[in-house]
Simulated scan of single mutants.
Amino acid sequence: MTRRNAAPIARKEPLASRGSSGRRASKQKVAALEEVLAYKNRDVVARFLKSYPIDPADAEDIFTEMKRWLWLFGYRTMVGARKRLYVHPPMTALDEMWHCFVLYTEDYAEFCFRFFGQFLHHRPVTLAEKARAQRRLDKDPEAYARAFARQMEGQYRIIAKILGEETLRKWYVEIPAKYSPEELQRLNAQSAVFSEHA
């Protein structure tokens, strides 16, 4: 199929270095957390609800916590923090909301450049990283467990120090108590079955 009357696609610089208006993004400070939390996007929340039929108020809350996570990520990037933060299984609901947001590429890019001055990439663990972790686990399970515990404790400290213990508790205890990875998987399967028969 040929594209007729289509405007030519011209890209003079990588998308990651451009603002939503196409201008080169200037280095800026991360916006205040309150500004980031005030951002709304009904489409993202609606898409999440389509995949995970939960209480809409809970979906809004998960969207808020996902924005808080992105702010932490953006803040640590700005200050040049070297220690990588990870989305652990208890944070699956936040990660799934992030996946929904990333699908709205224009909105997500505009959000990133507006509040962080750069595009925040969603970087899942790679196959090579998984293989290295598996080799370490196979070689010395106790050493692997100790290293993982240290990594978790470090992340807990960072979250508690910057966002408070209430946020740490919400991400690792309260939200997963209601929406564990298993519960989200069940809800997603239920949603898929319902969509097939609707």
Rank of each mutant, 00 (worst) to 15 (best):
Q155H: 06
H121G: 05
T167F: 03
H121L: 07
D140K: 01
I162P: 07
R150E: 04
R132G: 03
R132W: 07
R169A: 14
A128M: 10
Q151D: 11
K161M: 15
Y156E: 07
E166M: 05
E174K: 15
Y156K: 08
Q151S: 09
E153Y: 04
R135E: 10
P124W: 01
R123W: 12
A149K: 04
I158Q: 10
P181K: 02
M152L: 14
I162H: 10
P181V: 00
E166R: 08
R150I: 10
R135W: 12
A177K: 11
P141I: 01
R146D: 12
Y179E: 02
A147N: 15
M152E: 10
R132E: 13
R136A: 05
Y172N: 08
E142T: 03
R146H: 12
K139T: 12
I159G: 05
E142P: 04
R169Y: 15
P176Y: 03
A143V: 06
R157A: 03
L137E: 11
D140Q: 00
A131M: 09
I175M: 07
Y156C: 05
A177W: 13
K170C: 07
E166W: 15
E153G: 03
K130D: 12
Y144N: 06
A145L: 10
M152C: 11
L168E: 08
R136I: 03
E166K: 07
R157V: 01
A143L: 06
E165N: 09
H121K: 09
A131K: 14
A133R: 00
K161T: 11
P124M: 01
P181G: 02
A128G: 13
P181M: 01
L127S: 13
L163V: 01
D140E: 00
W171I: 06
G164K: 08
H121S: 09
H122Y: 05
E129H: 08
P141A: 02
A131I: 14
E129V: 04
E174P: 10
L137V: 05
G164I: 04
Y172V: 14
V173A: 13
R135K: 13
R146N: 15
A177V: 10
L168Q: 10
Q151H: 11
Y144G: 06
D138Q: 06
A133E: 00
A131H: 10
I162D: 09
A147C: 12
A160Q: 13
R132A: 06
L184D: 01
E166Q: 09
D140H: 00
R123Y: 09
P124I: 01
I158M: 14
T126S: 05
Q155S: 06
R123T: 10
T167L: 03
A177Y: 11
V173F: 15
E129C: 04
V173N: 07
D138C: 08
A131R: 09
K130P: 07
P176V: 01
A143M: 12
R169F: 10
R132K: 07
T126M: 04
H121D: 07
Q151V: 11
Y144I: 04
R157M: 02
L168S: 14
V125T: 12
